[in-house]
Design a protein around this nucleic acid. Structure first.
Lengths: 150, 150
DNA sequence: CGGAAATCAACATTGTTTTATAGGAATTAT
DNA sequence: ATAATTCCTATAAAACAATGTTGATTTCCG
């Protein structure tokens, strides 16, 4: 119905992967490893991580022994920040942020509708931090194990 | 952040246009007129209206004096139906409906997140009928007139 | 009745954006 | 020096958006 781009999805998984390794002393993770764990092309991840770096959500260390790590704690990074970084400033539809995009802005009967949907999504992703997502995944993992153990 | 395709947007405007002409006796509207009013290429509208017809949201009458009209009253057509028709059965992400799409389904920590967002949108668009949207637009139009009148 | 006009219908083509891959340059630890 | 890694640029492939061309069906009007 409405598509979340691969950049948004992969970017989120990338950050979540970094979050899992956060705080382990030497916590820089090399992209190659993330690519293998998440089964995503490393070349594509390289492109996706650029805006994450620019927006100061990750830090990088170059050269041998280098890698990437979260710039802040997982409890302090919201999904909305990640999505905004990798997908640019765009909303559900262009006209929401670029008034010149369409001549009908101001009278368009659908404008408010898309805005409502866009706000819903923004609030939702604003309300979730990487830690929240990890906590959910933890519960899910345990449930899956319990099921498998029967 | 997340993109609503042009098919979804144009399809909705198309249906809304038909809704405005609904019930005027001979209420078949020709596509050329909608294309002009909405400033959308008629060729493109022709492609978009096909799935709307297949899903019985609009009726068509061929030949001279023909055109398109809503298959039901505006109060009985929900935005979710329109979007589903023109965009196919897709959700926010593929894996929500196609389990074979990704090997991590079942353990993926982001799955629940996308599903949550997808459900939010579905409920939102499910709750709005064409009549609702027209009613909103009516209020907005009057407000704009009031502002212009001062 | 018959043809012209209006309109929907179907298929092909082009352009743009997204997604993904490729090669190599710059940097750093050992 | 060498190997491991990030960083930068180019390009190929796929999906999406839009346009163009022709054909089929129905109505209108003489």
């Amino acid at each position: 119905m409405i598509k979340l781009s691969t950049k948004g999805r992969y970017g989120t998984r990338l950050m979540l992967n970094l979050a899992r390794h956060y705080g382990n002393g030497a916590d820089a993770v090399i992209l190659k490893r993330i690519a293998e764990e998440e089964r995503i092309s490393i070349r594509y991840l390289e492109q996706i991580i650029i805006p994450l770096k620019i927006n100061r959500l990750v830090k990088s260390v170059r050269g041998a022994g280098g890698g990437y790590s979260l710039a802040r704690g997982p409890e302090d990074i919201r999904l909305s920040e990640i999505l905004r970084a990798v997908e640019g400033n765009c909303c559900l539809v262009e006209c929401l942020e670029d008034g010149s995009y369409c001549e009908f802005v101001g009278t368009c009967p659908t404008f408010d509708i898309w805005k409502g949907a866009s706000d819903l999504l923004r609030d939702y992703f604003e309300s979730l931090t990487l830690r929240d997502v990890m906590a959910r995944a933890g519960k899910k993992g345990r449930k899956a194990q319990a099921r498998a153990g029967r």
